[in-house]
Amino acid sequence: MTEVMAPMDGKILHVKAKVGERVQEDQTVAVMEAMKMEIQIVAPVAGTVVEIRVEPGQAVDPDTIVAVIQ
């Protein structure tokens, strides 16, 4: 189990990955906005997305778990 964390403080714009989807390492799981920039939140490892824990508009910080990959 690997937790995908938000890289910084900001707001979720879209969630790209779906539960059950296979993702590659560095594939975008969600996009957030921070410091007026769109930031890709990427999978740190390849695997299957088992959980998505955020939704668009949600505020996140570096302790926020965005998704869980197995």
Binding site: P7, M8, A34, M35, M37, I39
Partner: peptide, 8 residues
Amino acid sequence: QPMFLAGS
């Protein structure tokens, strides 16, 4: 590097 932490 704008790809990470918005380049901050």
